[in-house]
Write a protein that binds this DNA or RNA. Structure first.
Lengths: 129, 129
DNA sequence: GCTTGACCTGGAGCGCACTCCAGCTCTTAC
DNA sequence: GTAAGAGCTGGAGTGCGCTCCAGGTCAAGC
C-alpha cells in the first residue's frame, strides 16, 4: 500500500509543500516513485512522519530532527546517540510543561482580578500591570 | 526608583534591543526619559514587562499582546475584552500542555524501546520509525 | 486527441520575533 | 578638555519553518 503525496499530506497533517520541504532538507528519505515519477509514500514513511510531527509539536528544532534522522541511517550503532537525544528532549518538554504551568498561575491571578473588578462596581481601581 | 535600559533588560530578562523593539511596536509605552534623553524605566514599567514575558513564554503572538496593550489604555471600559483575551489564552495554554503531555507518551515509548534494544544483545531488530 | 487535474522541479518569498549596525550624543572619570 | 562607555535613532539583516510560484510532465476521462 502506497500513498500519493496528497494522501500522505492528509494523513500526516502536513502540507504537500512541507512534505517536499522535509525531503529537501533530508528530514525524510526520498520516497519511492510510481511509474510516472510521482512520490509513493509507504506506511513506514508515514510512521516516521508521524513521529517527526511529535518531535515538531514538542518544539524540537529541525536541525536536531535532522541529526536524529541522520543517526537513524546508521542503524543499531546509533541507538545510544538517538536515545540520548530523546532523553534530553524529554527533559526539555517536561521543563516546558512546568514553565507553562507556572505562567498559568499568573494568568489565573489576572483573570480572577478582572472578575473582582467587573464584579464589584468600584471603577478605576485596577491593580497595575 | 527608575532603571536605565541595561538594568531594565537585566531585570526583565529581555535584551536591550528587544526593549526598544517592544517600544517601537507599541507593546510598551515609551518610558520616561532622564535629563540626558535616556530611557528611565519605572517599577510599573517592569511589572508590565514581567507580565508581557509571561504571555510571550506561553506563546501568545505579539499581535495579540499589542491588542491587549491597546485595550489597557482604555482603562476600565476594556476589562471585559481583556479578560476575554486572557481566558481564551488560558484555554490555549491548557490545550498546549495536554498536547505536550500526549507527545511525551510517544517519547517515553520510544525511549523504553531503545532501552530494550541496547539492553538485550539482539541487534538489528529495531521497531520501525 | 485533448482537456483537466495531480504532481513535478528549482527557486523566490513570507511572517515572525528579534538582532545588529553605523553614526551620533551625552555623561562621567581622569 | 578629552577619552571611554552607555545610550540614542532609523534602518537593514537574520534564522526559522515553511509557503508560494512559474513553467513543465504525465495519466485518465471524455
Amino acid at each position: 500500500m502506497t500513498y500519493a503525496i496528497a494522501e500522505a499530506a492528509h494523513r500526516s497533517g502536513l502540507s504537500i509543500d512541507t512534505l517536499r520541504y522535509y525531503e529537501r532538507i533530508e528530514l525524510i528519505d526520498p520516497p519511492a516513485r510510481d511509474s510516472g515519477g510521482r512520490r509513493a509514500y509507504t506506511d513506514e514513511d508515514l510512521a516516521w512522519l508521524h513521529f517527526l510531527t511529535k518531535l515538531r509539536t514538542t518544539g524540537m528544532p529541525i536541525k536536531l530532527m535532522r541529526e536524529y534522522a541522520r543517526l537513524r541511517h546508521q542503524g543499531v550503532a546509533s541507538v545510544g546517540a538517538r536515545k540520548h537525544i530523546l532523553v534530553r528532549h524529554r527533559e526539555d518538554v517536561l521543563a516546558r510543561i512546568e514553565e507553562l504551568r507556572s505562567c498559568l498561575q499568573v494568568l489565573n491571578y489576572k483573570i480572577e482580578n478582572y472578575e473582582r473588578i467587573s464584579g464589584s462596581e468600584q471603577d478605576r481601581q485596577e491593580v497595575p500591570a
